[in-house]
Simulated scan of single mutants.
Amino acid sequence: MGTHGMILFGHGARDARWQEPFQRLAAKLAAARGDAGPVSLAFLELMTPSLPDAIASQAVAGCDTITVVPVFFGQGGHVRRDLPALIAQCQSEHPGVRLRCAGAVGEDDAVLDAIVRYCIENERA
């Protein structure tokens, strides 16, 4: 059985502080996964690494499966159009690596439930 990498994929921003919660999320995910495989960040624009660079890095590190998790609130144009094109490009560049893509995290009911709990907790604060 090979190594399974994960890449958290975000939009990117001009302000470097924007990626701080993504870095915390990546650290928490890496800790939760233990030695299951590497966890990386990648960005569509304005920040590095790009998704192709992050996938190439994990492939070189020996990952034979990589799951890309779009850390977007919804399935907008970037997730519906740009991301599949990037995944297809990367798959052609790394035919020996199985690339999987999750849905946008904000589309998941468990994530929405966590946000509801957060909102209610802040209502009471």
Rank of each mutant, 00 (worst) to 15 (best):
G2K: 05
G5V: 05
M6Q: 09
L8I: 07
L8Q: 04
L8W: 08
L8E: 02
G10L: 09
R14T: 02
R14Y: 04
R17T: 15
W18T: 12
Q19R: 14
E20Q: 06
P21R: 12
Q23M: 15
Q23N: 12
R24W: 15
L25M: 10
A26G: 13
K28Y: 06
L29Y: 05
L29R: 07
A30C: 04
A30G: 06
A31G: 05
G34C: 03
D35H: 11
D35F: 11
D35E: 13
A36V: 03
G37T: 06
V39N: 05
L41P: 10
L41F: 06
F43I: 00
F43E: 03
E45Q: 01
L46H: 03
S50W: 01
S50V: 09
L51Y: 00
A54V: 08
A54C: 09
Q58Y: 05
A59R: 02
V60I: 01
G62Q: 00
C63K: 07
C63T: 09
T65W: 00
T65I: 07
V68L: 10
P70F: 04
V71E: 11
V71M: 09
V71G: 06
F73P: 06
F73Y: 07
F73L: 10
G76D: 08
R80S: 14
R81I: 15
R81S: 14
D82E: 13
A85R: 09
L86H: 04
A88Y: 01
C90D: 10
C90Y: 02
C90V: 03
Q91H: 10
E93A: 13
H94N: 03
H94Y: 08
H94L: 02
P95E: 10
P95L: 03
G96Q: 01
V97N: 07
V97H: 05
R98P: 04
L99M: 10
L99I: 04
L99K: 09
G103T: 14
A104F: 02
D108K: 11
D109L: 14
V111E: 01
V111Y: 00
L112Y: 05
D113R: 11
D113E: 10
A114C: 09
I115S: 12
I115E: 12
I115K: 13
V116Y: 15
R117W: 14
Y118W: 15
I120E: 12
I120V: 09
I120G: 12
I120C: 12
N122Q: 11
E123C: 09
A125C: 02
A125D: 04
